[in-house]
Nucleic acid binder design. Structure first.
Lengths: 209, 209
DNA sequence: CCCTCATTCATACGTTCGTTTGAATCATAC
DNA sequence: GTATGATTCAAACGAACGTATGAATGAGGG
């Protein structure tokens, strides 16, 4: 439909800059400069700066959601009642694996996600599609079967905890020199540590009323 | 030293607006309007907008750090080797309890923290004092004794996971509606759920190499 | 060649931003 | 009362912002 070159380079530049400087902290001029495009290109291809943000976030989220859905399908094809650890692996794994090339172990994309989570502004709220909601609901149901006795509220709380850990942990704010640590953590180790951490957390017995 | 009235009201207004709209999304004019102060008051009392941010964050963090230190002191006075659950309670509890009055269950302050975590900008990086680092190191040591066999890197990863869950989980509560859940979650329930979730996560066996 | 349509371009508009300035105001001590 | 130092005030500065506009540019079909 549109020239894929300029459009894609705008998305690439915006993805990087939105993660580093935030939506409001990134000017259209900075994006078009980095993309080697004209100032008016954003307005032409995406309508507005907010439209560009939606396109950027959708492009990041889509492969994650797809991999989550495929993982759950694969699991349910094998057994009707997967273990908690398997579910955690299928749900959280794509948050590590489905990161754009060139991203530093997902740190940049994680930062973008953290920024969006923390921002209640209008422009940040409209990027989840029905596909994301459907996958989320399927995981909620599967976890609910694997964790009988857990209320829907507490289960949802725990799912959000999974997202929080995977998103925030790779943002290297706290990677500043901690005694006895050689930061940053290698990508593959962080992935395994997260699965261990989260599988144990999800498997905790229900909190007493 | 300075008139406490204007100064405090600037801090109050900035704390609210920084959390809601972010640092760059909040204008000095919006802050001074909400505080009922003159436009130049920020420059006079805090030097610059960035100076105001540092003062805001320090005021938020200080009681949390103090309560974490007091909790650990209390624990170590009772026994030299506290349990993981006790340590989690002492470390994560203040992140729920030490929230400013008027905050909606800590959601607003949590949002501010999430925003700062996700922002690599210069102005956001200078708010941790030596007191914070000292408390953090003491908890690292105590957790290390309670979790033998866990590498320093994986332990630090888990501590960051605790911060991630406590900070992010209350942010999203007010953003989404999930089928079968009557959000928002009451503050006291979220606190207990978080401790359960995190104590199990911290207690997980070390990840195999 | 020429018409068409998508895309790119330089440019401008009105707004809002953070900061600065110098005068006005206030409280307090002498 | 008046001097003093701290605080508040209205006003202005240049810079950067998002967006809109109309002309140039390019490729492809007739």
């Amino acid at each position: 439909m549109a020239s894929p070159d300029t459009r894609t380079q705008l998305l690439d530049a915006a993805e990087r800059l939105f993660a580093e400087r935030g939506f409001r902290g990134t000017s259209i001029r900075a994006i078009t400069d980095l993309a080697g495009a004209n100032l008016a290109a954003v307005g032409y291809h995406f309508g507005s700066k907010a439209g560009l943000l939606v396109a950027v976030v959708r492009r990041v989220i889509e492969p994650i959601t797809a991999a989550q859905r495929a993982g759950l399908d694969r699991l349910l094809a094998r057994t009707p009642d997967p273990t908690v650890t398997d579910l955690v692996e299928a749900f959280a794994g794509p948050l590590f694996d489905e990161m754009p090339a060139g991203d530093e172990g997902g740190a940049r994309t994680s930062r973008l996600i953290v920024r969006i989570i923390g921002d209640p502004a209008e422009e940040m709220r409209d990027w989840t599609g029905p596909a994301d909601d459907a996958v989320r609901d399927r995981y909620l149901a599967a976890f609910g079967r694997a964790l009988p006795g857990l209320s829907a509220e507490e289960l949802w709380f725990r799912i959000r905890g999974v997202l929080a850990v995977t998103a925030v942990d790779r943002v290297e704010v706290y990677n500043q020199d901690v005694p006895g640590c050689s930061s940053p953590v290698a990508g593959e180790a962080a992935r395994r540590w997260a699965i261990t951490f989260l599988a144990a957390a999800m498997s905790a017995p229900p909190t007493g009323a």
